[in-house]
Simulated scan of single mutants.
Amino acid sequence: MGHRHKNKKLGILIFLVVCVLFLHYCTIHDVVLRHAIYRMLFFLPLVLGSFWFGLKGAIFVSISIIIPYIPYVYHQWNGFYQEFDKFLEAGLFVFMGCLLGYLSEKQQREQEARLKAERLAAIGSAVSQIAHDLKSPLMAIGGFTKQVTRHLSIDHPDRKKLDLVISETFRMEAMVKEMLDFGRPFQLQKTEENLNHLAAECIEISLPFAKSSGVDINTEFDPEITVRPLDSNRMKQVILNLLTNAIQASSSGKIVSVRTKREKQGVALDISDCGCGIKAEDQQKIFEPFFSSKKEGTGLGLAIVKKIVELHGGHIILFSNPEGGVTFSIKLP
C-alpha cells in the first residue's frame, strides 16, 4: 500500500468519525431514534478500517470513536442500569471491529502466501527446465576438455587455459545443481539424528576452507540435545551453506561461531559471522530466490536453505550482531 494511498484512506476514516460525532453532539439528547441511527453509522468507518488496515485499523477506529464519545456519554449519564445497553453496544462494537480486523488480516496473509507459492512454483518450473537443458552441454564440455588436457604436457602453454575451462565448468555445474535443487520437490528421508553430530561433521568438512581464509571456527554445543527425526543429508546441506557464507563474509583473523541450544519448542542452531553485516532492507529479501549480495552465485542458496528448514517443520531467521556481522538462527521442533 503506497504512502499517499494510505494517508488518503486514513483521511476518509477520520472524516467519517468526525462527521458521526458531530451529528451526535449537534442533536439534542431527547431524539433517541436519531442517536441510535448515528451509533449504527459508527460501524461504517469501523468496517472500512478493518478491511483496509486489518486489526490495527479496527483498534485505531475504535479508540478514535470511544475517546471523543466519552464526554457525550458523561453529560447524558442517567445511571449505570439505564445506560447498561450502551455498554453492551460499545463492547459489541469493539469486539466486531477486532474480529473483522483479524479475519481481514488472516485472509490477506493467506492470499499473499498463495500468490507467493504460485510465483515460486512458476519460477521453480522455469529454473528446472533451464538447468536441465544446461546440464548435458556442461558435462560434455567438461568431459572433452579433460580428455584434451590429458594429452598435453604439464608445461604446455594451453594447459592453464584448459584448466580454467574445467574450473569454470565445474562452477557452472554447481550452479546448475542449485537450480535443480530449487526447482524439484524435496523428498525428505528422515532418520533419528543428533544435531550436534551433524554440525560437527559439517565443521570438519569446512575446516580446510576456513584455514585457507584465515578464519577460526568456534563451537558451543549443548550436550543435552537429544536425537530427533532429520534428513541428515539435507540438514548438512543447510549447515554447510550457512558455514560457507559465514566464512566468506568474515575477514582473516576473525571467528565464525556455531552454537546449539535447547529451547521450549525444540532446538536451535546459530551460525554467526564477523563480516560487514547485511543491510536492514536486504534482510527482508535475503531468502527470496535469485537475491544475492555477492557477485557470484545464483542467489538460490538461502532460498533452498529456507525450503529445507521449513520442510522439517522449522523456520530460519537472521539478526545483526552488536559487534558486527549477522547470525542465522535455525529453529527446529
Rank of each mutant, 00 (worst) to 15 (best):
Q82F: 05
D85H: 10
F93Q: 01
I65A: 08
P68D: 06
E110L: 14
W77M: 02
A126W: 03
L88D: 03
W77Y: 09
L100N: 02
A117Q: 10
Y81G: 03
E83D: 09
F80H: 03
A121P: 01
E110S: 13
I67D: 05
A121R: 02
E105K: 00
Y102F: 15
F93M: 01
L99W: 14
Q108G: 09
N78G: 10
Y81E: 05
Y74M: 13
A126T: 00
E110K: 12
K86A: 04
F93W: 02
Y74N: 12
G97E: 03
G79S: 00
N78K: 06
A122D: 05
Y102S: 08
Q76M: 07
S125L: 04
L103K: 06
E83M: 02
L115R: 08
G79W: 05
Q111R: 15
I65V: 15
L92W: 06
Q107M: 15
A126N: 00
E112D: 11
Y102C: 04
L92T: 08
R119D: 08
Q76K: 08
I123V: 02
Y69Q: 12
L92P: 02
A113H: 10
L88G: 13
Y69A: 13
Y74A: 15
L120M: 11
K116R: 14
Y74W: 15
Q108E: 13
I123D: 00
I123G: 01
R114W: 11
E105H: 07
S125R: 14
V73D: 05
H75M: 12
D85R: 11
E112Y: 08
I65S: 07
I66V: 14
F87K: 03
R109C: 13
G101K: 01
